[in-house]
Design a protein around this nucleic acid. Structure first.
Length: 495
RNA sequence: GGCGCUAUCGUCUAGUCUGGUCUAGGACGCUAGGUUCUCAUCCUAGUAACACGGGUUCGAAUCCCGUUGGCGCUACCA
């Protein structure tokens, strides 16, 4: 095929606001966005709300918010305003483009490429069942296509498109050549009436009117494609280039649904995932860059993305890898950037602290964070005295007097350090001077527990440097008291 | 049922077009080891796959046919 003059690249995301932004829709958005960016094209957002029953404004808002959060900015489409969603009139909402569809609907009717159908739902359903029983591909029998056929005293039900019985062939960017048999389709319903168009028709009109060059969408639309191509031909529209993406699957290879994982994108924001990590993860669902480096930011993805390298079969959603990517992305963030992401939650939880202080916490905790939500529970002991059982102070099978001796040694070592030079380095040096290679745990473990109250925490020298000399000594003394109390209890019980 | 798409480690995938360099590579997970007071990070090693059956060929993960499985569509939803 001759490529001809190069059309400007214009792609679109066309979600229907019948639910919150689905993880699959987010990936379709990403691939469209990537394709637009790398081809110097435009990324258009269009809301497909022809189904009045199921479409809701709150979902529109969630979809726009989700895309915005991911950083997938669109060049044309609805604008997210102060109230949270697009204004009352938007040329990018199908429900407000009824006049446009009406014009084309009338044209098809006038040219006898579409007709009113008088058959009732019940009649159609009965026919359909019969055909299935006979082992045929169920389709409309074309009764009303012939103007002479009786429809005595009936109301028109729907508008049907005269679907030609030809072979429909197109080249899909990810699947190659795909062929359908038009004779199996039957005359498609394209509208309930002049002012109520249906999806397959509205898409064709909009993609033409918005001069869409490439349609990149989910595989679930593959079998809609021949229907849409036939309509394009009837209206003398140019057929865009198609690319059908594999679906995202749950662990049992069924369609990803709410039962298995969070399918709503914004849920991941709530769970402390970074947009960059999510983007990275969904990009890897069905696509893989050349080379071994999988941790990528959007600009690296733009550079490497190739729609022709997209996988053909469905990809199982793997939460472990998402979490791993999230921790990688967190590590790649600067402390300042992390601070910005963490502060809203700190504020919300009423945790008041100097920025410098929080920055230090971020520095020591960064490598331990799987999600942003881990930060507060993992750093609580920096803000308040840790609460722990005395037995946690025990290193291996040490006795109470041994623990006491260890804490006392640490206390004395710490006391010798000048309060102004109470750095992780100086604390470490002081501690190293009282341990040898075999007794390290004896000193470090009880001290670390005294300072953090936790089984797992950063290095005690780091904790000490952050909370300061005074607080460090105080916490060691508290630990000492706990040990003493335990000893007394122990003797009480045994006597 | 019909039509379409699809098939490499548990998962995401490289390799398939242009057969040999693939005793099939990487990543996540898991296991073990190293660093280490702990956890995490980091490093090293291990684990594990060409769905099945035919054919073509000196040679097949790669090409062809069939089978089986998975998924999508089959709406007056999108």
């Amino acid at each position: 095929m001759n490529p001809g003059p190069k059309k400007p690249v214009r792609v679109r995301l066309a979600p229907s606001p019948t639910g919150s932004l689905h993880i699959g829709t987010a990936r379709t958005a990403l691939f469209n966005w990537l394709f637009a960016r790398q081809n110097n094209g435009k990324f258009i957002l269009r809301l497909e709300d022809t189904d009045k029953e199921r479409s809701e404004k709150k979902f529109e808002k969630e979809i726009l918010e989700g895309l915005k959060w991911l950083g997938l900015d669109w060049d044309e489409g609805p604008i997210l305003n102060q109230e949270g969603y697009l204004g009352e009139f938007s040329p990018y909402r199908q429900s407000e483009r009824i006049e446009v569809y009406k014009k084309y609907l009338q044209k098809l009717l006038d040219e006898k490429k579409a007709y009113y159908c008088y058959c009732t739902k019940d009649e159609l359903e009965a026919e359909r069942q019969d055909m299935i029983v006979e082992g045929l591909s169920p389709k409309y029998n074309g009764h009303c296509r012939h103007p002479d056929n009786p429809k005595a005293g009936r109301e028109p039900q729907v508008i049907r498109f005269v679907t030609s019985e030809t072979k429909i062939e197109f080249t899909d960017l990810v699947r190659g050549k795909v062929v359908f048999d038009g004779s199996l389709l039957g005359d498609q319903v394209i509208a309930k009436n002049l002012i109520t168009p249906l999806y397959n028709f509205a898409v064709v009109i909009d993609d033409e009117e918005m001069r869409v060059s490439h349609v990149i969408r989910g595989e679930d639309h593959l079998s809609n494609t021949p229907k849409q191509i036939l309509m394009q031909k009837a209206l003398d529209f140019e057929t865009p280039v198609y690319a059908h993406l594999p679906l995202i699957l749950a662990a049992d290879r069924s369609k990803l649904s709410k039962r298995y994982a969070e399918t709503s994108l914004l849920d991941y924001r709530e769970k402390g995932y970074l947009p960059g990590a999510l983007l990275n993860f969904i990009a890897l669902l069905g696509w893989h860059p050349k080379g071994d480096e999988e941790v990528m930011n959007p600009s690296q993805m733009t550079e490497k993305f190739d729609v022709k390298k997209v996988q053909k079969s469905g990809a199982v959603f793997n939460p472990e890898k998402l979490t791993w990517l999230n921790s990688q992305h967190i590590k790649n963030l600067s402390s300042q950037e992390l601070f910005k992401l963490l502060s809203p939650e700190l504020k919300e939880k009423n945790i008041i602290a100097e920025k410098e202080f929080v920055l230090k916490l971020i520095e020591v905790e960064k490598s331990r964070l799987k999600t942003l939500k881990d930060f507060i529970p993992q750093t609580d002991f920096f803000f308040e005295l840790p609460n722990y059982e005395a037995k946690l102070l025990r290193w291996k099978d040490e006795t109470l007097p041994e623990i006491e001796t260890s804490l006392l040694k640490s206390l004395r070592a710490v006391e010798k350090i000048n309060a102004k030079e109470f750095t992780a380095k100086s604390i470490k040096e002081a501690l190293e001077s009282i341990v040898d290679s075999t007794s390290r745990g004896q000193i470090y473990w009880p001290l670390r527990v005294a300072l953090s109250g936790k089984k797992a925490s950063p290095d005690p020298a780091e904790i000490g440097s952050i909370i300061g000399k005074e607080e460090t000594e105080k916490r060691i003394k508290i630990a000492l008291e706990k040990v003493t109390n335990t000893r007394e209890n122990y003797y009480d019980q045994s006597s």
